[in-house]
Design a protein around this nucleic acid. Structure first.
Lengths: 226, 226
DNA sequence: CTTGACAGACTTACAATGTAAGTCTATCGT
DNA sequence: ACGATAGACTTACATTGTAAGTCTGTCAAG
């Protein structure tokens, strides 16, 4: 059992440094740019050296989940939220939005989460905290369980947007061209912007909160009158 | 403009056949097994021949989205749902559950959806249909828009489950070992199974419907009293 | 029937990636 | 002083996507 020592010619890697480096690359250059070689280079080392600290690339991705979850747990711990016994709804809302801030800083995180098979301990612990919050807020285990499913990834601050309504320049002609294929969407955009610029008309943060509140409201109703 | 002709020594490929083959491989052997070479082999052809019908592998994945969406549209068309004017909630529910049946047949689909950048026309058309349904059900464009966001991937029949509560053998000892790390989850499982077997105690279909109904109920409330 | 254009298959080749296997060296406990 | 060892490096290879070029069977025009 050697403690920690700086073996080798230089500072020495560590699982910590490897994972931090991986997160940095994903943040700066995207998930596709994260290869064992690019990661090694960023750490001033050869690719194979990484394998002394992580089993393989899958383990790096698993580690990224831990990194993100640690940031989320830290953000949640910093929160000055009400006691769930007094106001579980606000406590939950703040927790989820704190998690969301972390996720927004790491746009690659949802994709990494999704490709992990099996639940990581870090994720399980987070959901355990969510469930504990609901328990303190007066939920039965049964309703708490359903609530975890209903929230899904939203509990961690992201919703799977399969369909991005904005990002279009959408001058009137472009809309007209689309009107045949997707008439209702086009009408919706026209209605929302009444002829003005479309870029950025869709406020994702607001929409996320809307969906979250819809679920929380529903849960609260079930909690009080089952 | 040559019409359709069987050029070459054999039956001849086509974009159609390539995409169907790709879906078959993903279904049978998983998404990771889908390579240009494996796909070619399955079609009795060399890898490079595929490039006469698809631009590159990304295009194959784009095509998979189309394949899935076509199946969903077909399932939706077969539905014997009420007119949205009479009962939008049931019409929507049936539509989403029909989509879900397709998605369940293609477990790789969510991952493919998520990695596509930009919205495909097929997906946009689907959401256009959802929005149209809501319009006929009495939604404003504004509420319809928010509803699309609130539903998110659920409109297509899947929820991002980051956390899989089952899949554990969970004899009492295993639970005891986890109790330190995730006490609430363990208590929840104990409560739900009161000592019995844990395997498969979690009914994903039922949980999906619960979450869906929670959202639909919330939307209905907003629709009738804004 | 000949011929030539071309769609659509095949062959070859290469760069990028993950990683198995083995080597080298500085540090530490004895 | 010295052997063990952690942790770096080197080499090598299988898999993948795909660029570039070749070959061949079919069809339309002469």
């Amino acid at each position: 059992m050697a403690g920690k020592r700086a073996a080798g010619p230089q500072v020495g890697l560590s699982r910590e440094r490897v994972l931090r480096g991986a997160a940095a690359i994903a943040d700066e250059r995207g998930l596709a740019a994260l290869t064992m070689r690019s990661l090694a280079e960023a750490l001033g080392v050869e690719a194979m050296s990484l394998y002394h600290h992580v089993a393989n690339k899958e383990a790096v991705l698993d580690g990224l989940v831990e990194v993100v979850m640690a940031e989320i747990e830290a953000a949640v711990a910093d929160l000055d939220a009400p006691e769930p016994e007094d106001d579980w709804r606000t406590a939950m809302r703040m927790r989820v939005l704190a998690a969301r801030e972390v996720l927004v800083r790491h746009p690659w995180a949802p994709r990494v989460f999704e490709t992990r098979t099996g639940t990581s301990l870090a994720v399980a612990r987070y959901f355990d905290g969510v469930l504990g919050l609901m328990r303190r807020g007066g939920f039965s285990y049964e309703l708490g369980h359903r609530a975890l499913h209903a929230l899904g990834s939203r509990a961690l601050g992201f919703s799977q947007e399969l369909f991005e309504p904005d990002g279009i320049e959408a001058p009137e002609e472009a809309l007209a061209a689309m009107a045949e294929q997707v008439p209702h969407l086009v009408a919706m955009i026209r209605d929302a912007t009444h002829g003005g610029a479309v870029l950025g008309w869709c406020d994702y943060q607001a929409e996320f909160e809307f969906g979250l509140d819809l679920i929380l409201d529903g849960l609260e109703r079930l909690r009080t009158k089952p």
